[in-house]
Structure formats: C-alpha cells, structure tokens
C-alpha cells in the first residue's frame, strides 16, 4: 500500500468516477496513483503564497452572439447515434429507487 493514497481512497474515487475495479486493478492503481502523487510532492511542498491561480492560458470573456436563428445539428442524425433512442428521446433504465 502506498503512503500517498490508500486502497480505500482508490475505491472511493472509482465510485465517484462511475468505474468498477476488480481487486487486482485496485492494487495496481493504488501503487501507480501513489507514484504519480509522489512526483507531485514538488509542488505540494511549494510555498505559493498569494500567487493567483491560472485556470486558463488566455484571458477569457463571455462571448455573445446576435439572437438570431441559425441551422442546428439535425435531431434525427443525433438520435441515430444513441444507444437506445425512442420517440425522439434517449431511453434509459429506471432512475428512481437507486442508491445515491
């Protein structure tokens, strides 16, 4: 087990990410993610003081366009690529009654 990330952390993160791992994969990822996070110790240890974060390389502004109708992607063409289209919609299994 790595000191950086525990087996329980890996199981928890996999659940958050909607991935199912078998026992061998949990062991493998625990070691590998631990190695990667160990490399990141150089920035974890860094004193970054009051440096502001940069989430994006260029200054971004809201982009607006004129409120006019333009052609859209064709609905039938989109639905044709869905795993289970029905009556112009995406069909899914039951949602209610699931575990959170």
């Amino acid at each position: 087990m790595s000191e950086r990330i525990s087996r329980a952390d890996v199981v928890h993160v996999a659940r958050l990410a909607r991935l199912r791992l078998d026992d061998d994969e949990i062991d493998l990822f625990t070691g590998q993610l631990g190695d990667i996070l160990a490399h990141a110790a150089d920035i974890e240890a860094l004193d970054v003081g009051d440096i502001p974060p940069t989430s994006h390389p260029l200054p971004l502004v809201n982009v607006m366009r004129a409120d006019v109708v333009t052609p859209s992607v064709d609905r039938d063409e989109v639905l044709a690529q869905a795993p289970a289209p029905e009556d112009g919609r995406f069909r899914v299994p039951p949602v209610l009654g699931e575990e959170p």
Binding site: A40, I43, E44, L46, V48, I51, P52, P53, T54, S55, P57
Partner: peptide
Amino acid sequence: KALKVRTM
C-alpha cells in the same frame, strides 16, 4: 497548487 504553478 497546480493552478498557481501555472501562474508562476
């Protein structure tokens, strides 16, 4: 932290 490194 990584975002702050980006600024650096």
